[in-house]
């Protein structure tokens, strides 16, 4: 599968990871390990070649990774345009800053959005493909996965594809149950599983370091369900979003302004001079 310069690819992904904000564990921002990011970025660049793609959440920065591999001339394929929707303003702004810095802000953009809200009407059925690597739903029977998927489905055109990245471990029952439910939802909306790469990616996940995710590529055959209007997540799903009686409390993560983007925060260190006239 890999037919690119590995060093150039890893260095390009290094540009991206350097740009990411620190993950917030409470919102399941758990980052994919770098080697797997390289392979995943290449994979989606191939599958989304020439397409207009929407990412429903993207803490990993796979969107930037795929596009940056292309603009760094590591690969010669990739999406035509990318829109990343995320509820974390730190992620949104880091994507915008990166796209401006590397000169592709006309092709890669990002905006603040929480999946519990209706999808903005100007985004309904406008993209060729969606990608989501949502909270995996270990404690909520996949509720979070379904919510993210449904927003992706709302954002794509009739003839479209979508990629879902979620936990996949045959010996951990909840992962298989969530995977089954998500495929059922996709099928309800007229998608079939076009491709499935099982147990692909490792994460910086403290309590399950061996747990991997799969890439499941859906292709729509017929739009069995076609919403012309997006609705807010209903109250029951909202209340149980993070598990039984564990509701969504935070609408947005807001960025604190700093002059030190990508640099060490000043409150984490202090400088101590040599002191004395001769530095002794």
């Amino acid at each position: 599968m890999k037919d690119f310069d590995l060093r150039a690819a890893i260095n390009a992904i290094s540009d991206v990871t350097q740009n990411r904000p620190q993950p917030l564990r409470e919102f399941d921002q758990i980052y994919m390990k770098v080697a797997d990011m390289v392979l995943q970025a290449d994979f989606i660049a191939r599958r989304f070649d020439g397409l207009d793609v929407v990412f429903i959440g993207d803490g990993d920065s796979i969107a930037l990774s795929a596009y940056h591999l292309k603009t760094s001339n590591v690969i010669d394929y990739g999406p035509n345009s990318i829109l990343v929707l995320d509820f974390d303003e730190r992620i949104v702004k880091s994507i915008i800053r990166f796209a401006e810095k590397y000169g592709f802000a006309d092709k890669v953009s990002s905006q603040l959005y929480n999946v519990a809200d209706p999808l903005p009407s100007d985004l309904m059925h406008t993209r060729d493909a969606f990608y989501t690597n949502p909270p995996w739903g270990a404690s909520n029977d996949g509720e979070s996965v379904i919510a993210f998927m449904e927003r992706g489905i709302e954002a794509v055109k009739e003839k479209s594809i979508g990629m879902l990245v979620i936990a996949d471990a045959p010996d951990i029952p909840w992962t298989q149950s969530v995977l089954l439910d998500s495929q059922r939802i996709a099928n309800d909306h007229g998608f079939l599983v076009a491709e499935m790469l099982p147990e692909q990616h490792f994460y910086h996940l403290d309590d399950a370091p061996d747990l991997k995710s799969c890439s499941c590529l859906f292709r729509r055959i017929t739009p069995k369900i076609w919403n012309t209007e997006s609705r807010k997540l209903d109250q029951v799903r909202f209340e149980n979003f993070y598990g039984n009686n564990n509701p969504l409390k935070v609408r947005y993560v807001r960025e604190q302004l700093t002059l030190n983007y990508g640099r060490a925060e000043e409150h984490t260190y202090r400088l101590e001079s040599w002191g004395g006239k001769n530095g002794d």
Binding site: I172, P173, W174, D206, A208, L211
Partner: peptide, 23 residues
């Protein structure tokens, strides 16, 4: 056995190892 989180259902004997020391 682990009661919550991504390793739910896993036996503590397999879970408590390496840098994982609580659960």
């Amino acid at each position: 056995s682990v009661a919550i989180g991504p390793s739910r259902g896993r036996i503590a004997s397999d879970y408590i190892q390496g840098h994982v020391d609580k659960g």
